[in-house]
Design a protein around this nucleic acid. Structure first.
Lengths: 197, 197
DNA sequence: AAATCCATGTAAACGGTTACATGATTTG
DNA sequence: CAAATCATGTAACCGTTTACATGGATTT
């Protein structure tokens, strides 16, 4: 997998200086549906980036709260990030979807299981769709304000374009699951509703 | 990321014994659009699986070709695989999409670049869609025959259901890209067609 | 004659997760 | 008063990639 975490972190720091803890929030909320990272990895990566001169840090005192180490992107960091943005990606993303691996082998599973699994996926993706549509947009807008992201209308445009991708992805998945369960039921590969356990 | 490679390999071996080289082909063709692995990792994993008693191997001579080490799933391996299939996955897949990270930061990029990148993605996804629709189905069918996969109609059904997912995924992505480029152009975030370089 | 495919592996490095360690402040 | 949030880090481990090493058979 491409080394995207460094770029994602530099990108966030281009909008505003922030701590490792803040970066984790930005990544695991704003772009959670297509990238994620654990705090431990973020701290390690920040250390490495500071050694490489891409960021600098200083402790910042806070009234009534413990102080935090705030990272700021350096000119070298900006150069590195902009150079990456100026390149063109010529390969499709390599995706790993455990649920599709499971689906591939479902012909070997119990029909009761297949039915339950598909029903659960439908519920989870329905929830996720609602999360993208109703909960995430205001959360992201609020986050950008709180962390004082200096940005232009076009930044906002592309941020919300990635959200739109999430929405379309969930809708497509729900469509696929509906098709799958309908056809599987017709062919007798999953039990039709009998209600009782 | 979940430890899917072991399950994917056991699953393939449930249908027919095969070599590490064959397994790589099965994984990187049949299920390439949602899982992949390098040969070196496959060989290491096979070694580990043999130590754990999930598979056994024996050298198999071939006329006019070098011999190969053919792996067969053991009863313990079947048990392990079936136990996994009988569990229900209660979490959504965690996806990593480098192209979406790039999109998120496109407000900071040159408009010329954005335009070129989106155009290239459109071409690549169009190609991939055609690959799923025209090339993969016969390739997979042929592969299953050659490697003597003993299977039932329901196996086939779920194999092609994962292909259908790939098709829908590409169509959805193309729709998203069309929407994105249209809106970005309207708002002046990418240069409209001027043809000359 | 060269390139690709078949075929198997090892070693080092890298990316990422899990577990551990600590403790103050805020919210329910 | 308990749980969640804020806040920073280290160490060990695991999964994955890249580079190395080898060589016969087939296709172009």
């Amino acid at each position: 997998m491409k080394n995207m975490l460094k770029q994602a972190m530099l990108g966030m720091l281009r909008y505003a200086p922030m701590s490792g803890y803040d970066l984790e929030k930005m990544i695991n909320v704003s772009i959670s549906h297509f990238w994620h990272a654990k705090l431990s990895q973020i701290y390690r990566t920040l250390k490495k980036m500071e050694e490489d001169g891409l960021v600098t840090s200083e402790m910042q005192e806070q009234e009534g709260a413990r102080s935090k180490r705030v990272y700021t992107i350096t000119p070298a960091g900006i150069e590195d990030f902009d150079a990456w943005l100026a390149t063109i990606d010529t390969e499709l993303d390599e995706i790993k979807l455990p649920s599709l691996v499971r689906t591939f082998f479902m012909g070997l599973a119990e029909t009761k299981n297949v039915k339950d699994q598909i029903a659960l996926w439908q519920r989870l993706h329905q929830q996720q769709l609602e999360y993208y549509q109703a909960i995430l947009p205001p959360t992201i807008a609020q986050m950008m304000q709180e962390r004082k992201f200096e940005h232009e209308p076009q930044d906002r445009f592309f941020w919300f374009a990635t959200l739109r991708f999430g929405e379309l992805y969930e809708q497509m998945t729900l469509q696929w699951l509906a098709e799958l369960s309908e056809q599987a039921e017709q062919l007798g590969y999953i039990k039709p509703d009998t209600q009782e356990e």
